[in-house]
Amino acid sequence: MKRSFRRVLPQLLTLAALMALVTLFFPQFLSIDYAGGRLSGPVIDVLKRGAPVALLAVGMTLVIATRGIDLSVGTIMAISGAVAAWALSSGWGAGPAVILAVGAGLVCGLWNGCLVAIVGIQPIVATLILMTSGRGIAQLITEGRILTFDAGPFAWLGSGILLGLPVPVFIWVLTAVGVAALMRRTALGLLVESIGINRSASALAGVNATVLLIAVYMASGLCAALAGIIATADIRGADANNAGLWLELDAILAVVIGGTSLLGGRFSVAASVLGAMIIQTIDTGILLAGFPSEYNLVIKAGLVLMILLIQSPNLVGHWHFLRHSLRRDPDASPRGAKS
């Protein structure tokens, strides 16, 4: 317990600092209202709007832990959203629509996994294939338009309220907790880390690296499908061109902010979803602060750069060195009577 808390401490501190910063520009940031059976306020918006990236980050964490990367998650969101909207508009119920969408995500993951684990294509290239071609598939399903459907149980997944909180919040929190538990309560976490650090040594120790790799990409596809369902349910329509566009990069960023190395190995799902919340806090903060939109990306890039610099082990080393020499200075001076 204590150990895992210490693992996410940097991310928690970053998030707290960021929230303080946003509050400077937008004083009501932390205010939460309760009206009509629902909580509302900027923080609730962050939790809800951060759902897609948080979900993608969960899957991406596992993929990155195996020393891979999944560039196709944004596209898988579009495909699964299109499948769900198609199912709904063809008169199927919400249940079948969810099952079909999740199934589409799993199939996409299986495709990626086979390319990486069996064919042996580098992950960045293998998933790039689906990233670029997948939007075409989604457009074929929606016939190139925004496929809309009426509010109903499916829309509830995107904009419904449960126990005063938006439903997407429950979906990403439960997914993250579920995946983290699955990894740490079973041996999966260890085996995934081990193939990420040294696939060849792990295979020689009897770890079934091929099956695990495929499973990890399928998990990523599943998380992307859930994100796609939320995005589609939220606007009650599947937008094949724009759903999840560039979100794979935000997801990778969330994992990096969460401190999981792109070289694979040790991972923390909790730190990655905190990373997603950090990114969403930046996004929402920018919108609330009311700067002209030309500055959005500059501000975001600046903040992300700062966070990564502060978290960089190199810089921490320099910082210790600096502090050390500062502390030593007074001792060296004749007046230094402290020691």
Partner: peptide, 29 residues
């Protein structure tokens, strides 16, 4: 280095790795 140890894992995890892989992921030691 390349085929034996899993460098970033702990001594404990390296010792149990083969046994764990043999038991399967659903039965963690």
């Amino acid at each position: 280095k390349t085929d034996g140890i899993v460098a970033d894992l702990s001594v404990r995890e390296n010792i149990i790795l083969a046994l764990q892989a043999h038991r399967g992921w659903t039965r963690p030691i």
